[in-house]
C-alpha cells in the first residue's frame, strides 16, 4: 500500500481504521508506522471529523413553528387566490383565444367575393322558382 491508496481508503471509509475492510487494515497500519505523510493524512482526517461533529451544534430556533404558522395564516388568502388563478387561467385563456380567432375570421370575411355572391344569388333564386313550381322549360 502506498500513500495514494491510503488516501483513497481514507476518503471512502473515514478515519476509524477498524471500519476499513479487513484485508487492507494490516497494510494500513504498516504504512502508518513507516510513513509520516500517511500519519499526517490520518491526523488531518481526525481533525476534519472533530470539526464536522462540532458543526452539529445548531442554535435553538425560538418559536419557529409558531412563526411558520403565523406566516402561513397571513398568506393563506393569497394562496387561495393563486390556486383559483392556477385552476382557471388555462380554460379562460383558451376561451379568449377562440373568441378572438372567431372575431378575426368574421372581420376578415365581411365582404364576399363578387363571383361567389352572384353564384349564391343565382342558386337562391333558382331554388325559389323550383319550390314555387315555376321551373323554366329547358327544352
Amino acid at each position: 500500500m502506498n500513500e495514494q491508496n491510503f488516501e483513497d481508503l481514507l476518503d471512502r471509509h473515514g478515519s476509524d481504521l477498524s471500519l476499513w475492510p479487513e484485508n487492507v487494515r494490516e497494510e494500513a497500519h504498516e504504512l502508518l508506522a513507516q510513513s509520516p505523510a500517511a500519519r499526517s493524512m490520518l491526523n488531518a482526517e481526525l481533525i476534519v471529523d472533530n470539526v464536522l461533529s462540532d458543526a452539529m451544534v445548531v442554535p435553538n430556533a425560538d418559536r419557529l413553528e409558531q412563526k411558520i404558522m403565523a406566516r402561513f395564516a397571513a398568506q393563506k388568502r393569497r394562496f387561495a387566490f393563486d390556486q383559483w388563478r392556477a385552476f382557471f387561467w388555462k380554460p379562460a385563456f383558451a376561451a379568449t383565444c377562440s373568441l378572438a380567432f372567431g372575431f378575426y375570421l368574421g372581420a376578415a370575411n365581411q365582404e364576399l367575393p363578387v363571383d361567389l355572391a352572384e353564384d349564391l344569388t343565382y342558386v337562391t333564386f333558382y331554388d325559389h322558382e323550383e319550390w314555387s313550381g315555376d321551373v323554366p322549360d329547358e327544352s
Partner: peptide, 17 residues
C-alpha cells in the same frame, strides 16, 4: 462528493501543518 470535500479539508489542514 464526500470524498472530494474531505480531501479538500484534509489537504488544507496538512498544508497548514
Amino acid at each position: 462528493l464526500i470524498g472530494r470535500a474531505r480531501r479538500t479539508l484534509r489537504g488544507l489542514l496538512m498544508k497548514n501543518n
